[in-house]
């Protein structure tokens, strides 16, 4: 990894690296480009913040709770598909547990 850093704000570089930051967050870049971006970030506070907040944004969405399918929706789906006789409410769904 390169140890030299740019001590000035270089918006040309920021612009150039912007399109790669998403791949950078996924760890999907070549070692070479990775090192280049990291060297740039050493001297560029803005790009550091963009990478941090981009990564955090992805993480927050990955952790967002999955909305549950309401039992009534599931029941109607089984009906539309003519599978009523196979329908069982989800025992973990508090609203549906009384129907059996």
């Amino acid at each position: 990894m390169s140890t030299h850093s740019h001590h000035h704000h270089d918006s040309e570089s920021c612009r150039r690296y912007l399109g790669s930051l998403s791949d950078y967050a996924d760890g999907a870049l070549t070692d070479e480009l990775c090192a280049e971006i990291e060297a740039h970030m050493e001297g560029c506070e803005n790009c550091r913040v963009v990478v941090n907040t981009l990564t955090k944004t992805i993480l927050l969405y990955r952790q967002s709770p999955a909305p549950d399918m309401p039992d009534a929706v599931k029941e109607r789906l089984y009906k539309v598909l003519h599978l009523e006789k196979f329908y069982r409410s989800d025992p973990t769904d508090p609203q549906g547990s009384s129907s059996t």
Binding site: S22, V50, T53, L54, Y61
Partner: peptide, 14 residues
């Protein structure tokens, strides 16, 4: 598309 979506969401959440 993922890159553009992520950057837009980052901007908005920031």
């Amino acid at each position: 598309r993922l890159m553009r979506a992520r950057l837009k969401l980052r901007e908005r959440l920031s």
